[in-house]
Write a protein that binds this DNA or RNA. Structure first.
Lengths: 216, 216
DNA sequence: GAGGATGTCAGTAGAAATACGTAGGGGATG
DNA sequence: CATCCCCTACGTATTTCTACTGACATCCTC
């Protein structure tokens, strides 16, 4: 049987041991190395080429996110599960950005970590309960904000057409050619749009339209 | 003890009974109504004002998503858990958009539903394993796409600063004032940016910068 | 049929952006 | 020290955008 090779990175021996025990209760998993710092993690990852890296987010020299970014820059498919003390939104979203596949908050049960390991080795992502809560909260805040703004502003069909063309980077002349109307008319629409949406130039107009989800 | 009032909506009696049993094993929960269609759900929700609505996504007259949207438009804080046969990405993301707080795929265990009920009643979101997998897959695809584009273009610190100000809708003069440099210099940066990023005007520049995640 | 919303177009004027090219000072690096 | 990159800055010319005002036809509604 081919065992999955796992590298553990944490500056606390006790945590390393705990994770190691947890991992090695599974016969198809084997811990092939332990790192005590960010730099050591980078070295060992290169040398050992593990199937999975389980890493603390806070380490003395370089934090887990920076290590993740470095590793994932060189090894885009690498599997990394982050262990963190915190369910901080910044941390979590940065990890997602960098391509980390798992994120488990330490005060959650060991089964969360096991589930994360299983999922990631199967090629899926796994963010633990608390981590998801944070993401969903952020997401729904965004949605809520969009909803409340959306009410007041109502655009005509033509105006929506125009604002989309503006967002595509066309000049008034180009829009006029495409719509078979005068460039002056396009400019009228543009002016009306800016007035309706309380902005001072086309760039802010496009941003606002994006926020209101008017572009496609 | 104040019991949490729950409304169940599903066109299949067997599913309703199953959910009902599951719910009423908890002493602090009580099923106060059952709806067999989308329209009935809307009526009962208005009349009964439940603390939580557990609803099938597919119903004869109006599907669960449309019902959700209608209810949430009138009751922005309403708690809704969607039961679905499918882990379709479109369904899930639409539910998120509308403000649905829970999404459970039917072939998952009953404990997923219980967990969802608990979480939502506590004011949190809960999307079951399969639903999350879909979202994360989508998310990481986006990240991956972004990454591949990012390589070629490298901007200097000053250029990044400028492109962000452009994205904020400032004119060259305003940027010059803020950065204590000549407006001509700002225009030089702007021109260099447009050349580097192969675009013809500021709007396309901003869009490109957004794609490359250069704006904060 | 009066009134409102929409889409169309124009004049005038000034502000801003874009397209060219050129160039010096400073820092890092070989 | 030569070279490259970055930041800085200017000249000239043209295009595009923004601001403000006024106007007319159409369609819908009350």
């Amino acid at each position: 049987m081919q065992k999955h090779k796992i590298l553990i990175a944490d500056d606390h021996a006790m945590v390393r041991d705990g994770v190691k025990n947890l991992v090695q209760q599974n016969k198809d998993l084997i811990v092939i190395g332990e790192a005590r710092s960010g730099n050591e993690t980078l070295e060992l990852f290169d040398k050992l080429q593990p199937d999975l890296l389980i890493m603390d987010i806070s380490m003395p020299d370089m934090n887990g996110m920076e290590v993740s970014r470095t590793i994932l820059a060189k090894n885009p498919g690498a599997s990394i599960v982050i262990l963190s003390m915190y369910d901080d939104e910044d941390y979590i979203s940065r990890c997602l950005e960098y391509g980390v596949k798992g994120y488990v908050v330490k005060n959650e049960s060991g089964s969360e970590l096991e589930y994360a390991i299983r999922s990631v080795l199967q090629g899926k992502n796994y963010f633990s309960r608390q981590a998801q809560d944070v993401i969903f909260k952020k997401y729904s805040q965004n949605v809520a904000r969009k909803k409340t703004q959306e009410e007041e502003i109502s655009l005509t069909k033509r105006e929506i057409e125009i604002v989309r063309l503006i967002a595509d980077g066309l000049t008034s002349q180009q829009m006029a050619d495409r719509l078979f109307i005068s460039p002056r008319t396009v400019e009228t629409h543009r002016a009306n749009l800016m007035k309706k949406m309380s902005v001072k130039n086309a760039i802010e107009l496009v941003k606002k339209a994006q926020q209101l989800d008017l572009l496609q």
